[in-house]
Write a protein that binds this DNA or RNA. Structure first.
Length: 326
DNA sequence: TAACCAATAT
DNA sequence: CATATTGGTT
């Protein structure tokens, strides 16, 4: 059929990593449309203030961090272009490994092996396919729970154990913003979980996290599409706060079709911008706050608060080190 | 295989 | 309701 959008992502030799691209076409487009300094700027700009970062000691080197993302971008593209599994490519390539500080301490667990999946191993892992462990573990877990109905105590993590369920990710406006920006710049079409995750470059974010959110986001877009006039800001606070990008880009008609009169123009990425320090936030589970729409009511309010407690203290250690790419 | 997507479960 | 998890496809 006309739409080849789907293009099989056969791993095939070159493809590797899902090669979402199906080809060079897509990549080309990426290069062109990717980083409009314009877009990128806000992206890298609006995060937490240096002070905050400093306070938490999470920002090792601003410049480094900055480069991280840029680097990541480049790497991503490069990786896609070349043939090598994205993730793998990253690993060998990344020089920003030194993110810092003490994250290692927290990571003590390591557990990445199963670490719920993302084991940085590469990323392939988590897909359910991993066969290795994540899924298995989970299954067992739930089975146990269901079976025995409820183990009164124990529960919750034993540090010693190697499997720790990752806490629910809370999509803060900041995170969501990043997300939207990335999606916008990728174009709805190329915006797939893995890529988004990598471009967001947020530590601890998993592909599944993004996938889930992406799903919701798509629904939101669709819904909004149908309703042209109307400003139901009250309905979707979080999303409403984010400008809906005109992301209706069409990819090059795939092989042979060039509906788009746009010559692929490789665009260097001339940014030089501020730093950013993305940080995923988790909520404490066990508590189902019936009150869903809490702070989100006001998009303008930037709740950057909770982070303080997390880092130092206690559980919830992020999966792996600085380079998130899985 | 690994990734995506949509549906479903928590 | 927001996320996570699962199953089916590509």
């Amino acid at each position: 059929m006309g739409e080849e959008v789907r293009m099989s992502e056969y791993g095939g030799g070159g493809g590797g990593g899902g090669d979402d691209g199906g080809g060079d076409d897509r990549v080309s487009e990426w290069e062109a449309g990717l980083p409009s300094a314009d877009d990128l700027a806000p992206l890298s700009q609006a995060l937490i203030s240096p002070e905050l970062a400093s306070a938490f000691s999470i920002a090792p080197e601003p410049s480094r961090t900055l480069h991280d993302v840029n680097r990541a971008l480049e790497s991503t593209l490069a990786g896609l272009r070349g043939h090598r599994t994205l993730s793998q490519g990253f690993s060998s390539n990344n020089e920003f490994k030194s993110f810092a500080e003490d994250r290692d301490a927290a990571v003590a667990e390591e557990a990445d092996a199963d670490g719920d999946g993302d084991g940085d191993g590469d990323g392939d892992g988590d897909g359910d396919g991993d066969g290795s462990g994540s899924r298995k573990m989970r299954k067992i877990d739930s089975a146990e729970e269901a079976d025995s109905a409820m183990r009164t105590d124990n529960s919750v993590e034993d540090p010693s154990a190697k499997a720790m369920k990752r806490p629910r990710l809370v999509w803060t406006p900041q995170l969501h913003k990043r997300f939207v920006e990335v999606v916008a710049h990728l174009g709805i079409k190329n915006a797939v979980p893995k890529t988004i995750m990598q471009l967001m470059n947020v530590e601890g974010l998993t592909r599944e996290n993004v996938a889930s959110h992406l799903q919701k986001y798509r629904l939101y877009l669709k819904r909004m599409q149908g309703l042209s006039s109307e400003g139901p800001s009250a309905s979707d606070p979080l999303f409403a706060s984010t400008p809906v990008p005109q992301s209706l880009h069409e990819s090059p008609g795939g092989g042979g079709g060039h509906a788009n009169g746009h010559a692929p123009m490789p665009m260097p990425m001339p940014y030089g911008v501020p730093s950013h320090m993305p940080m995923p936030v988790y909520g404490h589970m066990g508590m189902q706050m019936g009150n869903s729409q809490g702070f989100q009511s006001n998009p303008y309010m930037l709740p950057q608060m909770d982070w303080s407690g997390n880092r130092c203290g206690s559980l919830v250690s992020y999966p792996n080190s600085g380079s998130n790419d899985k």
